[in-house]
Write a protein that binds this DNA or RNA. Structure first.
Lengths: 121, 121
DNA sequence: CTGTATCCTGTGTGATACTG
DNA sequence: CAGTATCACACAGGATACAG
């Protein structure tokens, strides 16, 4: 285990956060939960990400054993990324984050349309 | 809803992340899920946090309607923080992050004790 | 007790160019 | 195709001091 964020293992919640907290990590896990993908496939899905950053995120996920990286020794190069067991166990959390976000969004949009401040809380 | 991270609402997962992604936010939500707390109570539990940062995190959580802030107009000042409905709906996610982190930790610790690299993936 | 106001810094992320 | 190497920078987070 790396020390990237040195407060790892102090608190399990923070530990989990530090592992999936990267700008793109949850989305990458989400994509890989559907099927394993190659570098450029991920790049296309994650429009806006740079090669450097995608590489970094993938390296960290791999180091933390959340994903597997399989290199095919052929030309042109081929690398496939897939979830590890621990990565898979993370998916329910990502799914919950997704549906919570959708619910939150719809509630906030509803709020904005209201004439009065009616505290939905 | 604020624009703090401007990629909000593009992706519900990222939206959720942006709301709870602060250095202390999940822990704060976790603490408030047990009972509402005052400023200095939180400060004591979150050893290491500065007043400024705690204030910031609480303000953001409040702005995003994840917590309530109740001011008692007395001297000395008294302010109580508690979860909102949307904040409460977040707790299951925090709980899952906690147990995932514990599981992850025990597996990683087990790995480190092994003589051979046996990929527990 | 519950905050503001400044000032400062590390790290994560991005732009761009190059490579086996 | 799947990277690496630099350079740059915003911004979250921290240290410290002051205030209603």
């Amino acid at each position: 285990m790396k020390k990237r964020s040195n407060d790892r293992s102090q608190c399990p919640i923070r530990l989990t956060e530090s592992l999936i907290g990267g700008r793109w990590k949850t989305i990458i896990l989400w994509l890989l939960s559907k099927r394993s993908m190659r570098f450029n496939e991920l790049r296309r899905e994650l429009s806006g990400i740079t090669q450097k950053v995608l590489t970094e995120q993938l390296r960290e996920l791999e180091e933390d054993r959340l994903i597997h990286r399989k290199v095919y020794e052929i030309v042109p190069a081929k690398v496939e990324y897939s979830l590890s067991g621990q990565g898979e166990r993370l998916i329910p959390i990502v799914v919950m984050m997704c549906s919570w976000g959708e619910e939150y969004l719809s509630q906030e949009l509803a709020r904005e349309k209201l004439p009065q401040e009616n505290s939905q809380g």
